[in-house]
Design a protein around this nucleic acid. Sequence first.
DNA 1: AGCAGTAATTGATCCAGATCAATTACTGCT
DNA 2: AGCAGTAATTGATCTGGATCAATTACTGCT
Lengths: 253, 253
Amino acid sequence: MTDNQVINLSELKSHCQNCSLYALCLPMGLESGDLDKLDQVIKRRQSVNKNNYLFRIGEPLKSVYAIRSGSFKTFLTNPDGTEQIVGFSLPGELIGMDGIGDGRHNCSARALETSSVCEIPYERLESLAIEIPGLQHQLLKLMSQEIQQDQNLMMLLAQMPTETRLASFLLGLSRRLSQRGYAATEFNLSMSRGDIANLLGMAVETISRLLTHFQDDGILRVERKHITVLQLDKLEELATHCASHHPNNSNIG
Amino acid sequence: MTDNQVINLSELKSHCQNCSLYALCLPMGLESGDLDKLDQVIKRRQSVNKNNYLFRIGEPLKSVYAIRSGSFKTFLTNPDGTEQIVGFSLPGELIGMDGIGDGRHNCSARALETSSVCEIPYERLESLAIEIPGLQHQLLKLMSQEIQQDQNLMMLLAQMPTETRLASFLLGLSRRLSQRGYAATEFNLSMSRGDIANLLGMAVETISRLLTHFQDDGILRVERKHITVLQLDKLEELATHCASHHPNNSNIG
DNA sequence: AGCAGTAATTGATCCAGATCAATTACTGCT
DNA sequence: AGCAGTAATTGATCTGGATCAATTACTGCT
């Protein structure tokens, strides 16, 4: 039975329908026959070591990637060489789609920890999406979700004080992790304080101080990279506690 | 001949292939037969008065819209009722695509001036995109471009000083307008100072002061809504003059 | 285990840009 | 034309959070 199980496992690993991320990922909602077609174009189980690039800004878009495990940061690079992180990506998420616009990647993706991905050649994905309406829909849906995420971050950056930004970031992470079957209230940050600061448009020192405050207030326990959320409700409150005193709160007439 | 011309004009108006925005808009690259199919699903020439909504956040997504003339602001509303503008849309651009993710609009769109749009029922667009590969591609491309735009704005908000943000905003507007056949160096702002401030995460007063500075430096002429760019190169310089002294300029190793 | 390089924390100071306040355009209405 | 409401400008002040500086963890290497 042990042998049997081993064989089954390796069987399982090579198909979307048996992947634990199925419900979040690209093949969501596809029926068996269509899934097989998709399965055939996916190059599975590429491993990416910590700090290695999955792709770099400017490279021609040849594939998009579904994350199986681990995490990535995606970032732009401005003329100075300064980087601007535009997001962190978790298992079940698709990265590289930003490059469709002009056929080149418009951001770089770098592994925050040793990770594994499924590579999906983009041209074949696009032609498959014509055959499979559900796949086209899922593709559009995932892109639209990315737009939503980006716009929410824009709101944080434009209007919210640093405390709200960090609370919202942590809460978002917690939610995404719990969707993926991990604990909502206890997790490890795979990214550095500097990376979080960069994403949220603040200084590392401010991140550090806020984490200390959150801990002093009994909202979090912070042990280096390990975060325990002690009072989820208070964190939610901080995250939604909008800038009622803030600029431009012109109500919509 | 005058009569003849009138007849021709109204003929022309009702087809994508004769629209001056063809090259920027959804039908870009489609061949004649496919264009006809697209033409058939488009409800043309809806007019939207200043300050009216094209759609509101939360409404079910029934259509997306291609802008024919005029301009819109798209914005999120947070729990307070505070608005966060996420973009301004110009002729040839497609709005409403953000709603695909969950079938409801995730932002509201409001006309900044009297405008006209082509309404495209979303379900029919999606099924047409299955028939017409080029249309699917164009759809994905436009969404990917929106992601890029949003991410660029994120960088501005997170890293750049106010001067750079405004310069970059004006330059972006100038470029988009000139792509659409308008003058690059002379245009009217259809949005208020308050709207610009909101988008760029700054106070109205700062916008006002910076415009005055730009004028004092001979870069712009500002007459209320009317902007004349006198030194495009200097404006470009200000827009790229990145925050070399700014936080988190961790070079990529 | 020990050393070197990097990440994180903590404290002190400073400043870009928000906020407050007052004035001066505009714009739409009747 | 005149009045009311809103948008924009300009100036004075204040502050959240950046910057600077120093110390204290870590982490990876040999």
